[in-house]
Simulated scan of single mutants.
Amino acid sequence: MSPIKFLLVFLFLSSFYLSFSQVEKKRNSKIVFLDLKSKALREYTIDKDTSGVHFSIYVKKYESKKERDKAIKIYNERVKNIRTSGENPSEVRLPDFSIGFYSWGGKPEKLKSLKGIKLITIKQFQDSIYFVKDPSYIIHQLKDGTYLKWKTYTMDVVD
């Protein structure tokens, strides 16, 4: 390959890689500000030594018990009628009611303020819940007015 062709191929691949990595970087930079008293928050646990944490946020459609019960009823009917419905059994599943965020083995970053941090609210997160990419970041306020920022990884939670 001539040096000019090599240079052109190298420049093309480099620009492609850089543009792709910028897209990935943007997708990875979701920082959710979580109000620990929000009804959209299903549950949370924080280890006393802050070496691990779990936050579970409801999928917007399933915040109410009524909607979750309705989905369970539909699922149970589909399972009951699976032999006669013609549905593929592997496609009959209960929907994900919430998304779990987990962090283990690493301490959170302690912040004095949120100045300069681009955050999304829990409601904004729920609107884009299916575009979550690991890792995601969760920030919540402590009683003393400071904040903890956790690097988390997601997992679907059904119940």
Rank of each mutant, 00 (worst) to 15 (best):
K107P: 01
T50V: 10
P3W: 13
Y44C: 00
K123P: 03
G106C: 01
L114G: 08
S2G: 15
P89Q: 05
I82R: 05
N88G: 06
G106P: 02
T45D: 09
F33E: 00
L7C: 08
L142K: 12
I82Q: 01
K151N: 11
I129T: 04
K73V: 03
Y17E: 07
V92F: 04
T146N: 08
D69K: 12
I82W: 04
R42M: 10
H140P: 03
V79K: 01
G106F: 15
E77S: 12
A71E: 09
S90Q: 12
L119Q: 03
D156P: 15
G100E: 03
F33M: 06
L8G: 06
K70E: 14
L119T: 11
H140C: 04
Y17G: 09
K115D: 15
E24V: 12
S51D: 12
R27G: 01
E77M: 08
P95A: 02
K48A: 13
F125Y: 15
G105D: 00
F55L: 05
V132R: 09
D134M: 06
Y130V: 06
K39Q: 14
S113M: 03
K112N: 08
T50M: 11
V23L: 11
L13V: 08
V23S: 07
K151M: 14
S128N: 15
I129Y: 13
V157P: 08
K118M: 06
I139M: 09
F16L: 15
K115G: 02
T45V: 09
D127E: 14
L41F: 05
P95I: 02
K107V: 08
L13I: 05
G106I: 14
Y58I: 00
S98N: 02
D96R: 09
L142A: 04
L7S: 13
K30A: 11
F125C: 07
Q141K: 15
K25A: 13
S64C: 01
V157N: 12
V132G: 00
Y62W: 07
D49V: 03
G86Q: 03
P108Q: 01
Y153G: 05
D35I: 04
D35T: 02
Y62E: 05
I72K: 15
K107D: 06
F55M: 00
G86C: 10
S21P: 02
D159I: 01
L11C: 13
F97G: 04
P135W: 09
T45A: 05
V59E: 12
V59N: 13
H140K: 05
I46A: 10
Q141R: 13
T146K: 02
K70T: 07
D47W: 09
P135E: 08
S19I: 15
D69Q: 15
T146V: 00
K112D: 11
S64R: 11
L7A: 14
I46G: 02
S21V: 07
Y147E: 05
E109K: 12
L94A: 06
S14H: 07
V32A: 05
D49P: 05
Y44T: 03
S64A: 10
T152R: 00
F20I: 09
F20E: 11
V132T: 10
R83E: 15
V132N: 07
Q22V: 06
E91P: 03
L94G: 05
D96M: 10
K80P: 01
K115A: 11
K143S: 09
